[in-house]
Design a protein around this nucleic acid. Sequence first.
DNA 1: GGTTACAGTGTAACCGCTTACATCGACAGG
DNA 2: CCTGTCGATGTAAGCGGTTACACTGTAACC
Lengths: 349, 349
Amino acid sequence: MPVTIKEVARRAGVSVATVSRVVNRRDPVREETRAQVMAAITDLRYVPSGVARSLSIRQTHAIGVVLPDLHGEFFSEVIRGLDRAARGSGYHLLLSGSHSDPAEVEAVLRAIHGRVDGLIAMLPDLEVDQLADRLPPEIPVLLLNGGEEAPWGGISIDNEGGALAVTRHLVGLGHRHLVFVGGPEKNSDARERHRGHLAGLAEAGLEPRLLPGDFSEDAGYAAGRRLLAAAERPTAVFAANDAMAIGVLCALREGGVRVPEDIALAGFDDIPVARYVLPALTTVHVAIDELGRRAFDRLLAALRGETTALGERERFPASVVVRESCGAKPARPTPVPAFFPIQGGSRQP
Amino acid sequence: MPVTIKEVARRAGVSVATVSRVVNRRDPVREETRAQVMAAITDLRYVPSGVARSLSIRQTHAIGVVLPDLHGEFFSEVIRGLDRAARGSGYHLLLSGSHSDPAEVEAVLRAIHGRVDGLIAMLPDLEVDQLADRLPPEIPVLLLNGGEEAPWGGISIDNEGGALAVTRHLVGLGHRHLVFVGGPEKNSDARERHRGHLAGLAEAGLEPRLLPGDFSEDAGYAAGRRLLAAAERPTAVFAANDAMAIGVLCALREGGVRVPEDIALAGFDDIPVARYVLPALTTVHVAIDELGRRAFDRLLAALRGETTALGERERFPASVVVRESCGAKPARPTPVPAFFPIQGGSRQP
DNA sequence: GGTTACAGTGTAACCGCTTACATCGACAGG
DNA sequence: CCTGTCGATGTAAGCGGTTACACTGTAACC
C-alpha cells in the first residue's frame, strides 16, 4: 500500500520522470513544477522505495558486515566505528554475526548478494581458505582478519608489534627471565603475539619460555599454578591475552606471590576489567572503533573506484598501556574497587 | 556484470520462469529440467539478486534496527539477541545507531523505507513524541523504550519491578534506614527505578531518603561522601545503577566504612565489573540478549500477520542477583577463578 | 473417443524507480 | 524565416526477479 512515484506524479499532474528529477535534484526542473511536486510528496507522505531505487541504479548504499560473533566489547566497538563512518557517507550496515561454520557463512554471503555494494568480513583463517573462491567476485571485499600468512588483503591488528612492545617494555624494566603464556595453536592472533614476543626476546638475547594456554582464564590460572610449583620462577609473565593474565594473577595471589613486586605481569587486549583488577593490568590496547572506521573508509574508496587495492594488507597499530602489574608505576595510592573473581557467575540465561 | 536469471535460462535452455521455479522450489518441475537448471546455476555461479527479488515480492526479509548509541554492553547484547533470532528466521538486520537528534532519526527512517519489512527502534522518550506521526505507517514498528507513560507499545525493562525486588530484599535483611541514589531526572529508567524503590519502602512503612545522582560513577562517589559526612548514616544504600554504586563503594571505603558490615549496598544493571568489585555487588540483572530475541519474535509475529498487537506494552523481567555487598551472603572465603566473560579481541575460531 | 485434470513449461505483465531519448517551445543567430 | 540550441518535460525501456495465465501433452475417467 505504500504510495509510489506514480501516484505522486498523478497528483502533481506531471510524469514520473519529473517527480524522480525533483526527488533526486537532477536535471533542471521549473521552480513552479518543483513546488507542485513537493506539495504532492508531502501531501501523500511519499518516500521513495529503497529497493526499487537500488535495482534501478544498481547500487544499494549498504555494505554487509559479517562477523564471527557479536559478543563482547571488541565486536561492539567495530560495529560502532563502522556505523559512524557508514552513516557519515550515507551508507547502511547489513549486519550478520554468530555464524558457526563455513557453510553458514556461505549461506549468509549468498543471502546478502545483491543487497550490498561491498562487504567487510572477519572470518577465522580456516574459513577464508574454504571460502576463497566463494567470496562474491562482483563486489569489493575487505577482510578484517588475522592470518598474516594468508594472501588475503585487508586490515588486521598488529599483534606482533604489540607483543614486541610489551616484551621490550618488560626487558627494559630489567627482567631477564620471562615466561609467555600462549594462546590456542590454531589462532593466528595468538601465533602473532607469540612471534612478537620471541622477537623481543631475541633482541635482548634472552631465552624463550612458554607455557601453553587457550585464551581462557582457567588456562591462565593453570599456568599460574605451574609457575608456583616451578623450581625457578620467572621475574615477569606475559600472557597472550588479558583473560589469561587475570587467571595467572589469581593463582599467584593464592600462592602468596606478589604482583608486581615478585613477578611482573602483562596481558593483551585491554578488556574493560583490566583496569579494575588489583594491581591494574599492563596490557595492549587497540582503538577498535577506529579500526572499524578505517575499514569502512578503505572499502568506500574501493567502491568509488579510487582504488582497487583492497588486496593490500594493513596492520592496525596496537599500543601498550602501562599500569601497575608490570611494576613500572607505583601502585595507586587509593585502590578503587579491588578485584576478586568469584565462584559461579550469576548471569542468567 | 553479475549473472542474471536470464543467462541461466538461456544456458539451461529453459525460460526464466522455470529457473525461478527451481530456485524457489515452487510448482512442479521435471527432475531432468531441474538438473539442467541446477547445472547452469553452478556453472555460472548464479546467485539471485536480493533487491530484485525484494521488489518483486514486496518483502525484503530484513528488519531495521535503530538504536540511540552502539556503545556498551547493553546494545551489543541487544543486537546479538536480535541477530540470532533474525538469522534463525531468515531475516537480516539493517543497523543504525548513534544518531543524535530526532531529525537524524527521521532521516534514517526514510532512508530505510522500502528496505525493511519491519522496524525495531529504541528512541529516547522525547524523540518518540516528536516522531510519533513520522514512524513508518506501512510497516510494523516495535519500540524498545522506557517511558511507561507514553501510549506507545513495545517492550521495556521492568525497572520498577527490579527496584522493588531489591528494596524488598534489603528490607527483608532488616534494614530500616535506606538511602536511594537517584539517576537523571529526564531519564525514564531512573524514574521507574525510583518509583519501584518507593513502592518497596511504602510496603514496609519506611521513610524515603534520596540523594541526587546522574548515573555516573562520580555522582556515586559524591553521594558516598555526603553519606560519610551525614549525622545519621543509613544502614543500606540502593544506587539507581551500578556505576554509581561503585562510586559509593569507593567513597565509603575511603571513609573507612565497611561494606556490607556497616552499610549494605546494591546497584542496578549488573554491568560486567559488578562481580569483580570487592565486595561483589548485589544488583539487578536483565537478560538483554533475550530481550533482543523477544523483540524480534514479536515483530516477526506481526510481520506474519499473526498479531497486530504491537501496541501492547510488555515488561521484560529484571531479577536481582544477590552477591556480597548487601550482606546477605558471607564474603567469599578463598577467591577462586571461575566464570569469566572473555571480552577481548581474542576471537577464537 | 471425449472429457477432464493436471504436470510441466513459456509468455508477458508487473514491482517502483531511473534515465536515454524524443518532443516541443522559446529564443538567438544568420 | 530558417535553423540550432537549450530548457523543461514526457515516453518508454530497462534493472532482475516473480507469477498469473495460457498452452501443450499425457494419463485417468466415464
